[in-house]
């Protein structure tokens, strides 16, 4: 639908205040989806340091001096990486919980309480993330 003139803020940005639960769920799901696919590519790239590492001597591997172990250990040693990992967990957990909600919606289950299930997935995401912080940060200091 072409615009005869630019309605600007009316069309786009200022509307977020009027969004209902379903729209927020969609926006968060899309955003977390982008983050996860981006992470998948990064993840495989980092893990592929295992390819050169597999050529190393057994003694080197046992001492943990190979490229792969060194890369992961130095990355995990950075506090920033640990914090980002907590963020990744939050993003993944939300995407999973809201994904489960969407699967139910696709099956036609509980469409009347779709807003409540969205709030529930938000709260659960928060709870799981907070509960996981000690495990994720352990050994970073």
């Amino acid at each position: 639908m072409s615009q005869s003139y630019n309605r600007g803020l009316i069309e786009d940005f200022s509307r977020w205040r009027e969004f209902e639960a379903g729209m927020w769920a969609w926006i968060f799901h899309k955003f977390t989806g982008w983050v996860l696919i981006g992470y998948l590519f990064t993840h495989i790239a980092v893990l592929s340091t295992a390819i050169p590492a597999s050529g190393a001597e057994t003694a080197v591997l046992q001492a943990g001096n190979d490229v792969y172990t060194q890369t992961i250990v130095s990355l995990e040693g950075l506090l920033l990486v640990r914090v980002l990992e907590v963020g990744l967990l939050a993003v993944a957990v939300f995407h999973m919980l809201n994904g489960a909600r969407l699967l139910l919606v696709d099956l036609g289950v509980g469409l009347e309480s779709q807003d409540k299930s969205f709030y529930a997935s938000l709260v659960l995401t928060g709870a799981i993330t907070v509960a996981s912080v000690p495990t994720f940060i352990a050994g970073a200091f």
């Binding site: 209902e20 639960a21 379903g22 729209m23 919606v105 696709d106 036609g108 469409l111 779709q114 807003d115």
Partner: peptide
Amino acid sequence: QTQFSCTEVCPKDIPLTE
């Protein structure tokens, strides 16, 4: 994408998303 916007605004309360 099951955003439910249509269902929310329908003045005749049609469960569109459903």
